[in-house]
Design a binder for these strands. Structure first.
Lengths: 211, 211
DNA sequence: CATTATAAATACATTAATGTATTTATAAAT
DNA sequence: ATTTATAAATACATTAATGTATTTATAATG
């Protein structure tokens, strides 16, 4: 079960941290896993929350007012306990003024104020798939602790931007990196690199006075 | 020399009317052809103004704050008296935090607050070309007066959404429309249609009491 | 030309979103 | 375990943008 802190949710949905903050405070989209509880506490959003955030952002980008978007999200929330396949076939149509929801068996108008020409179609399934991809990308950047000669080293794993593999970098040993086609391979390689450094340490680069 | 009223500028740039209004009032992007001068007056924007509006919108969509965008627009305004070819090679790079301007001979940082990864490239030339296309599309919808049997009829010309032609509709004669591959053809055809209607008038559709 | 209808700006208020300093939970270092 | 550093929420203020009623210029009609 994946949970996301505010910063990660911001990265994934391309909403600003402050906007997500504002939306929580105004009871629009709240972190369903763990609510904010004071300075330094941590909100935790579920994948379903991300879907809501992203749908809201998408509608906002199409010029729909926040008040109308609130209604769309309420509809979505009422009709989904979990993003299951049938719900992936929901499609939202909007021209910036009107929001329609198209499902398999009915067409529902969420909010109508002025008649207008429908120009945008937003498929919930596409939002979900796109978010899954984003989550995968973010997941690829994570920290591992590897053990070499009885000692633990902190390394970071991230996606190799030039190919489909993975890169690793050791925090405490400058210049100690590895690459692999899989996570496991990159881990093995970074271990070897760390071991090499233990045999032939390179001169540490001074960071100035701060030691 | 093309001038645009606020509503048209809004359509072309995809900014809201209120946002354009706010930007004028806050002395961000003012209508250079004719300024607002009271209730019911009319702002008139030049094509150059549209370029500024669209650049601002584009940067805004990339997450750049309005204050920083103001600086970019000031730079653009200082360096262009008219959107000429050399200036079309300007490119703005931004990650939402920093704005770079790349020109042929120099790289200039407009605003730097935090280092970040540059991810978006916005070519002024592309903005201009896109706006020209939008202007052409909007221009296609316009009013003409045609003369049939010594009498003038108001008709509207608009783009045919199903093909590359033009459609015309006569305001005062219900059901009187025409289509042509060119504007001239559509005009000839609507004249013929109007003449037919004069010979065989169809029953006018009552509009209720209002006559 | 006069009257009516419509479009556009204005005035004022409200909502939406962001900036910034501060507090405190959480992570990292020792 | 304790201390330090960092991240995240909060408090408060400000900017950005929008809503809505009103005024008046402009367009349309007779």
């Amino acid at each position: 079960m994946l949970n996301f802190k505010t910063k990660t949710a911001s990265k994934i949905t391309r909403l600003s941290i402050r906007q997500i903050d504002y939306w929580d405070r105004t009871h629009f989209i709240k972190p369903s896993v763990h609510e904010a509880s004071g300075y330094g506490s941590m909100r935790l959003y579920s994948f379903n929350d991300l879907v809501q955030l992203k749908l809201a952002k998408t509608l906002l980008d199409k010029g729909v007012s926040l008040q109308k978007i609130r209604k769309a999200i309420i509809y979505l929330r009422k009709n989904m306990s979990e993003v299951k396949k049938p719900l992936l076939e929901i499609r939202f149509l909007t021209d910036g003024e009107t929001i329609f929801v198209l499902t398999k068996n009915q067409k529902k108008i969420i909010d109508t104020l002025k008649s207008g020409q429908l120009v945008f179609s937003i498929a919930l399934g596409e939002i979900v798939e796109n978010l899954k991809g984003e989550v995968l990308t973010i997941q690829r950047e994570r920290r591992y602790d590897v053990e070499v000669k009885g000692k633990k080293y902190s390394v970071i794993l991230y996606a190799d931007t030039d190919s489909d593999g993975y890169r690793m970098k050791c925090f405490s040993i400058h210049g100690c990196t590895s690459r692999g086609d899989s996570v496991e391979e990159a881990i093995e390689k970074i271990k070897e690199e760390i071991a090499k450094h233990l045999y032939y340490p390179k001169p540490a680069i001074s960071k100035g006075g701060k030691q």
